[in-house]
Structure formats: C-alpha cells, structure tokens
Amino acid sequence: MPMKSFRQAINEALRQEMERDQRVVIMGEDIAGGLGAPGEDDAWGGPLGVTKGLMPQFGRNRVLDTPITESAFIGCAAGAAATGLRPVAELMFVDFMGVCFDQIFNQAAKFRYMFGGRAVTPMVVRTMYGAGFRAASQHSQCLYPVFTHIPGLKVAIPSNAYEAKGLLAQSIRDDDPVIFFEHKVMYDDEVDVPDEPYTIPFGEANVTREGDDVTIIAFGRMVNFANQAADSLAASGISCTVVDPRTTSPLDKETILETASETGRVVVIDEAHPRCNMATDVSALICENCFGDLKAPIKQVTGPHAPVPFSPALEDLYVPGVPKIEAAVREIMGKGH
C-alpha cells in the first residue's frame, strides 16, 4: 500500500465519493479559493490545501466556495441534505461553531426526530480541531464533546490517514449528519492508505495494541501518543492495550468495557478540557458497568481547564503528550493491588 498523508487521504476520499455519487457536493470558505479574484483559480484548495484539485476536476457547481458566513452555508448544507444532496461542508476551524451551531444542533441534528422519522439529513461537517499549531484560543479547541452530547449527530475523530479516508467515506455515505474532526497538526502524517475506496464502520473501536496491564483509551491525535507510550512502556515491562474508539457517537461501549475489564486499569487520554469531555464520559461508563473489575482508580490525562494559550512555551505544556501518558500509566501500576 502506498504511503499517504492525512491531507491526501481526505482529498482522496472526497474525490472518490464525488466520483461515486453525483449528489455529493463540497462547500466552504476558500475550499477552492481565488473565486472572483484576478489571480489563480483553485488558489488555496482550503486553508491547508486539503481540497486542492477538486474544483478543477468537478467544477464550481460541486466545489462551492462560500462567503465567510458559517450560519448560512452550514444551514444551507442541512437544507440541501434534507432535500436530496449529500453535502460536505467545511467548517474551517471547529471553534467557529460559535457562529453556526444552531444550524447543526437545532436544525440538522433534529430534523429526523422532529419530523417523525420522515427526514434524512446526509450531511458532513468537516472541521479542524486541536492544539499545537500556535493558533491560540479561538483556533485550537477540541469541542467534540459538545457535538457528542447532541442526539442526532454522529461524531468521527480519525487518528491517522488510513482511518481518515475510511471514516470520511463512511461519513459521506451515512444517512445521518456527521461531524468529522481533523487534527490540524496531523495533515502531513503519513501511513499506508489503499488507493481503492473503502469504509470503516462507525461505533467499532480499533484496538491498536493488546496488553495485559493497562488499558489506554485515547481519541484522535492522542491515539498516536498512546501508541508511542505503550511501545515505550513495553520496553520496561508494562504491557498496554490501546483503544481508539474512532467515533464518539456512536461509541463502542462494548470494546471499551471489555478491554477495561481485561486489564482492570484504565487511563483515558483526551485533548479536550477536563469537564464533561470524553475522558469523563468514558470513565463514568466504566465505573458504572465494570467497577468490580477495576484494580485501581481510573486516570484521566486531558488538556487543562484553560483556553489554549498562544505562546509555544505555554501551548506545549497544554497538550497532553507521551511523557504525561507514560507517567499516568506508571502511576496507576503503582497503585494496583
């Protein structure tokens, strides 16, 4: 299999799904770029070049640059989805949900229920999340816990390029609205990605490492840190299971509970702020269902309850990293009985 970056994987999934289904259109700010300007057409292909080349292939009728009006075009995607298109809207940074959340959680998420099951809303909102880009407080948040909270939405958080291509294809083919999170510092990360189209089903966690001592449950970019920590800990005789839930809604409770019970020690890694995030949610799930199997209190490694800072010196302290994960695993092993 050829090595492809996260960026290429997303681009390829969009291209293949647009080839596969004429109803798939993509829209967003500067997703082609240069519209109405005297210089190059397809000038940007998205702010980080993820959608580059799609407009020349599919034309401006299916690759729709929008004005900077998130409420209008995210709502437009919802309305288009309810009436027969399969739009993929790019919300450039998830932080911008603040200016369009109504269209996602009050409109798209609830159509099916409010309309008594007589609506399908096959829309995808692709959005960048996460710290580490020196992008400061309004361009660095995780926020997937907010979307996970809303019934009617599905939430996918791919941890690498392979996962990204398969989960995005599934998102586009899915008949429910999906919020698809792309970590902005991962776009250049490469793994083997098949050329052919493929899908990864929602609600099926990926167990990336199998071990006996500690179960690490991690989300998105943190899965890679958890894998690194597990490999490093293996050298000192601590064997870890690592679980990547892939989607926070639906959540693969079965795999989480099974792997938590097997080791009896759980560390949950979540880049999001600590109150009401995926770490608290998963910890509560485990406590409620398999408390008796636990040998030690659950450890959570998360970002702090503070906005994401700008200064690299501070931001590096903000992001949960491999050393913090290893320390949490060692601590929980020490507490075992």
């Binding site: 398969g166 098949p194 052919e196 189209p197 493929y198």
Partner: peptide
Amino acid sequence: VEEVIKFKRLD
C-alpha cells in the same frame, strides 16, 4: 489479521 480486515473494507 488487520491486513485481512483492511482488505475486506475495500468497496
């Protein structure tokens, strides 16, 4: 095992 799963996911 993963390789087989990945193959089976292909359209």
